[in-house]
Amino acid sequence: MHNFDYHAPKTLDSALALLRDKEDGKIIAGGMTLLPTLKQRLAAPSDLVDLATLSELKGVRRDGDEIVIGAMTTHADVAANADVQSLIPGLAHLASVIGDPAVRHRGTIGGSVANADPAADYPAAVVALNATIVTNKREIAGDDFFVSLFETALERDEIITSVRFPIPERAGYEKFRHPASGYAVVGVMVAKFGDKVRVGVTGAAGSAFRATDFEAALEKSFTPDVLLGIAVSPDDLLSDIHCTNEYRAHLVNVMARRAIAAA
């Protein structure tokens, strides 16, 4: 690990000030990706600004038709939250299958979403539930947030404060776990809002995307079987040492059908 200066600001404003002032400052949330990267000496930030002390960024609450999750809320807390469990059980399930218990007790929703790992679980929910990413500056629609591999719409001096999830009529998440890392080889969340359906896919491509062909079919009939025969093109999907793009394309369909069954 290279040397860096560590800061634990007491307020969001001082965190932002540090981020602006330091030459190559970086935010650390749960550190589930950043810490291993630092240990492998693959990153060398001048300063780390830790958000762990900002209690204002923690917690889950209901706000009308939405569940609002503070950016520094851990996956374990989301999974165990009674409101999430009763109002968006698919989201509680998603949080409960991220990584392993150690990751779930350190990793945070804000960190996961901001990092935009193509194999992370939360992006599927952000896309499928049409979540709003709330930052210190603005609100970003879920559809506009993920730009590409590890790249989001966030600006340099922008910190996610919460994620607002509209409460759907039904939603389900199913994932195919990578046997080594536990990441999503393919993860699909399907959400139904009245006669509208949204399908968010993670793991399969450079960033999370909506399976619009599936959505159109599901809006006619919200049953797993309507997706049989709707092939996913492997062309833009990832192919690596673990899985080919053809297998991922196949799994998108399978996971989507199972997500519907679980919804």
């Binding site: 046997p179 080594a180 890392s181 990441y183 040492i241 673990h242």
Partner: peptide, 10 residues
């Protein structure tokens, strides 16, 4: 290419 536990399945 599988020299980490992220890639080497235990």
């Amino acid at each position: 290419v599988s020299a980490t536990y992220m890639d080497y399945g235990m």
